[in-house]
Every structure is written in structure tokens, then in C-alpha cells.
Amino acid sequence: MNTDDFIDAIRWLGDGANWRGGDGVPVRFAEHMWLTGVSLLIACAVAVPIGLWLGHIGRGGTLAINISNVGRAVPTFAVMVLLFLTPLGLSDWTTIIALVLFAMPPLLTNTYVGMREVDRDAVEAARGMGMGALQVVGKVEFPLAIPLIMNGVRLAAVQIVATATVAALVAGGGLGRIITSGFGRGDYPQLIAGAILVAATALLVEGSMEWLQRRVDPMRRITRRRTIDQVAVPQAVPHEQSAIESRL
């Protein structure tokens, strides 16, 4: 291990020249966040309604749950290159299509499972009170499914940030470019600096999504006392666990 490279990487990060211009850190970061934000919005707009509907009618569970496993089996790099070689060619939209494709499985699975895990008694009570299908979804099922839906949004966001990095290998934009160009020119300090920036961005997104996940849970006031004990353990534990067990 060459510690000099690491020291130089810190210097690289501290050098104002790397933070200016068209390929400076802020521009790359903005590109990365733009790709992430747009893709996440599109993926949510498509996958969440489908998951809500499938979960409401209780159909398509096999599809909704297995699509996550299929998504895991397909290499992001392969899809990125395949799309790039289609007539779509090299554009931000090619990257966004790939990012949306990889963000949909966790969203769909978590939304579906969230809807199915809503207490049946609550749904029956809502129906008994005379609520129509839309009201049941909007006022009972959806609010109660929010924790799992937000878990899906968080997983999707982290997946998109990571996959957007891979776009740099196919010559897309984003922070991954700092790594690939450092690699290409044998500039290892830049490579390390890029890797640190990418890792920090991913952790930042993960952290803020976790915060958001807690903020938007309509039941948080009631469950706060219980969740405080669990703060040290990542939120994903029970859900990932149930995902693992659902495969048995």
C-alpha cells in the first residue's frame, strides 16, 4: 500500500483547482445528483402506483417479490452497455433509463409487501365504515404501508447512486468520471479522491434517506419510544430479513 497516494488524494481534495470548471467536483456532484433525482422520481412514479394496486387487490405477489431477485441477477454494467449500443446511444437519458430499471424492483417489492402487511382488520373496519376502494387505499392502506414504501425508496436511491457511478465506465457523467479518468491516466491520488467522494455521496444519500424514512412515518409518534432502542441497528434489518425469509 502506498500511503503517499492517500496523502496526495487528500491534497487533491483540498486543491481549489479541482473544485472549479466544467469537470470540477461540484459539477460532477450536480450531474450525479441530477441523474439520481430524476431517475428516482420516474421510478417512484411508475413502480409505487403499480405496487399499491397489486398490493390492494392482492395479486401478482410472485412477480412483485421475485422481480427484486431478477434485478439482482442482471449486471448493471451489462445493461448500461447494452442500452448504449442500441440506437439510443450515449445520452443522459440512456443512463436514466438504466437507473430507472434498476430502481424499480426494490420499490415494487417493498410497496407490495408493505400493502400486504397492513392489518387486515384495519382494512375490514375501513370497508365497514363505508369507505370505497380509493379511500381504503388512500386513507388506510397507504399510510400504514409508508414505512416499507420508504424503505423501498431508500434502497432504490442507494442503488441509483451506485449504478450512476457505473455510468462513468460507459462514458456517462457523474462522480464516477473522477475515478475512471484517474484510472485512465494513472493518476492514483485522483482515483482515490474520486472513490472517497463517491463513497461519501452514497453514505450521505443513505443517511438522509434513513432520516426521511423516519420523518414521514405517520406512526412515528406512537412508535418513537420503541425505535429509539433500535437506532444503533440499521432500519433495514427486519425488512431485509423478511425478504430473505420470504424466499424460503
Binding site: 465506465l169 482515483l191 463513497a199 453514505l203 441497528v233
Partner: peptide, 26 residues
């Protein structure tokens, strides 16, 4: 439990390009 799960989750969050890039220098 907390440190083991915390560390592995942080590692899992690091995008592969950054991970391989950092490990490459070692």
C-alpha cells in the same frame, strides 16, 4: 452486534466502482 452490522452496512453502501478503486491502490 451494532458495530458489526453498522460496519457491514457502510461497506455495502459504498458503490463497487469506489470499492474496487480503493482496493486497487492496495
Amino acid at each position: 452486534a451494532a458495530p458489526v452490522f453498522g460496519t457491514s452496512t457502510v461497506l455495502y453502501t459504498i458503490p463497487s466502482l469506489a470499492m474496487f478503486g480503493l482496493l486497487f491502490t492496495i
